[in-house]
Simulated scan of single mutants.
Amino acid sequence: MQRTNDPNAEAEIRELFEARTQALSSKDAATLAAANDADVVVFDAVAPFVHRGAETTARKQEWLAAYRTGIGHEIRDLTITTNADLAFCHFLVRISGTMLDGTEVGMWVRATSCLRKLDDGWKIVHEHASVPFEGETGKAVLTGDL
């Protein structure tokens, strides 16, 4: 991909991520779904690990419903590379909140998003979230130094 990093494209993509952060905080599934292309493919950090198209909306609704509070979504180190109609982003994201059963969540996840510029703006066409793990034990590393 030839890197152009049009400042307007980068600003639009940052706005999309900010809108998603606000949607998670207010448990707004419609805004979350609006950021995705109809044929989006999501590789999730929790099982089932792959969601496609409309399945992603149902997964987000299920995720939101599992929380008593809104979901905190703190993005760190967002890097965006764009050309005329494609963008690649990677970042760390801290997910936090209180689940219905009272469990307090506070974990870091690695994320990659690929977007396409369509007639109605930038849409996420692929997303991948992963949790780092300790090589010796195979256990997830959800907290600690980044």
Results as ranks from 00 to 15, higher is better:
residue 86 L to S: 08
residue 99 M to R: 15
residue 16 L to R: 05
residue 7 P to W: 03
residue 83 N to I: 05
residue 11 A to D: 08
residue 29 A to S: 14
residue 39 D to S: 13
residue 115 L to Q: 05
residue 109 V to W: 01
residue 80 I to P: 04
residue 137 T to Q: 08
residue 136 E to N: 11
residue 123 K to Q: 05
residue 22 Q to C: 00
residue 64 L to V: 03
residue 93 V to T: 11
residue 97 G to Q: 04
residue 52 R to P: 00
residue 21 T to R: 14
residue 65 A to H: 02
residue 30 A to Y: 01
residue 7 P to E: 14
residue 7 P to S: 14
residue 128 H to S: 02
residue 33 A to D: 14
residue 51 H to W: 10
residue 102 G to Y: 10
residue 69 T to N: 06
residue 8 N to D: 13
residue 68 R to A: 15
residue 66 A to I: 00
residue 3 R to H: 01
residue 97 G to K: 02
residue 108 W to H: 04
residue 17 F to H: 06
residue 80 I to D: 03
residue 32 L to G: 02
residue 141 V to P: 00
residue 101 D to P: 06
residue 56 T to D: 10
residue 67 Y to A: 02
residue 142 L to R: 10
residue 121 G to S: 05
residue 82 T to L: 08
residue 55 E to W: 04
residue 43 F to C: 08
residue 112 T to H: 03
residue 132 P to W: 06
residue 6 D to T: 10
residue 104 E to A: 11
residue 47 A to D: 10
residue 92 L to T: 11
residue 105 V to T: 10
residue 35 A to G: 13
residue 76 R to N: 08
residue 5 N to F: 06
residue 142 L to Y: 03
residue 67 Y to Q: 03
residue 135 G to V: 14
residue 86 L to G: 01
residue 82 T to Y: 04
residue 35 A to W: 03
residue 132 P to M: 08
residue 31 T to V: 15
residue 86 L to V: 13
residue 38 A to E: 15
residue 79 T to D: 11
residue 35 A to E: 05
residue 59 R to G: 01
